[in-house]
């Protein structure tokens, strides 16, 4: 649609002023791109240099002899494969848990009536204002009491309650017409049946959006794994890159290689699902 608008504008108004303005817009847009992307480019470039060259001619972004061995060294020094697997496990299970819980709750808030519904929804909204860090100590104590510290379950359970997800899905579900639900109800379909067969398929875009966000959030989370996981075999990638920030012998090219490796899966996911990210973000802001 934007393309169409742009094309028609190109045919009708061909004034110099317009061309100049478009040019200026592009210059500004590109300037922001450089600012945004440069650190990442420098990171990749640094990951292919050695300790002596990384800060010599540091803006020479294409190393003459790329040192791919930095990557194999990272892989050899710490069990990165295990860290990847742990991160995938935690992210996927957290996401699944929070999606199930959030969509069930969102359905109740959007489509069912029960006493105290609006107050409860407000309570859910209010908890979005509570920073997790303010309650991290009691959370730790509780999970420790459940014997779940040093398990991935701690992280998965902490993500079960997701007020943001409930809010996002509720806003989406409330727009859906009730006709289908009503007729299904008359046909004798149960609430769970309606939820599973009618509402969920319709809510797919919102669920996917929420899914990619939760996935991303778990993947990038550092503080919770830092607190709850103390055993190497349980570590996530965020803890893994800490191995390279050492007291003795910290090595920038290796740090950059490890960091690059931690970012690659996220970049891939983002490129495939970028539409959902951008739409999801837009929904949160404008429907608040």
């Amino acid at each position: 649609m934007e393309m169409a608008a742009e094309k028609s504008a190109g045919i009708t108004g061909y004034s110099i002023k317009r061309i100049l303005r478009t040019f200026l817009v592009y210059v500004l847009l590109l300037a922001v791109v450089v600012l945004t992307v440069l650190p990442f480019v420098w990171m990749v470039s640094g990951s292919l240099k050695n300790q002596a060259t990384i800060f010599q001619n540091t803006m020479n972004l294409i190393p003459s002899e790329p040192l791919w061995s930095n990557y194999s060294e990272v892989w050899n020094r710490v069990p990165f494969g295990q860290f990847y697997w742990n991160t995938i496990k935690v992210s996927v299970l957290s996401t699944a848990g929070s999606l199930i819980a959030a969509s069930l709750a969102a359905y109740a808030f959007a489509k069912l009536s029960f006493p105290g519904r609006d107050k409860l929804f407000l309570l859910f909204l209010a908890t979005m204002m509570i920073p997790g860090q303010a309650i991290m100590i009691p959370q730790f104590t509780i999970l420790n009491g459940m014997n779940l510290v040093n398990t991935h379950w701690a992280l998965i359970l902490l993500n079960l309650f997701n007020p943001y997800g409930v809010f996002l899905l509720r806003q989406f579900l409330i727009q859906l017409p009730n006709d289908l639900n009503e007729s299904a109800r008359i046909d004798g379909c149960s609430e769970f049946g309606i939820f599973m067969r009618i509402v969920m398929p319709l809510a797919k875009p919102a669920i996917v959006t929420l899914g990619v966000f939760s996935l991303l959030w778990s993947w990038n989370d550092f503080l919770q794994p830092l607190i709850y996981l103390s055993q190497e075999r349980l570590f996530t990638i965020q803890l893994g890159i800490r191995y390279f920030q050492q007291l003795n012998g910290a090595n920038y090219p290796l740090i950059m290689a490890a960091t690059t490796m931690s970012l690659i899966p996220i970049i891939v996911i983002y490129l495939f699902a970028q539409r959902y990210f951008i739409e999801g973000i837009a929904i949160t802001g404008t429907k608040g």
Partner: peptide, 12 residues
């Protein structure tokens, strides 16, 4: 309705 809410409520 509360069954639907249960997982979130318990988490909360």
């Amino acid at each position: 309705a509360y069954l639907f809410l249960a997982p979130s409520l318990i988490g909360l």
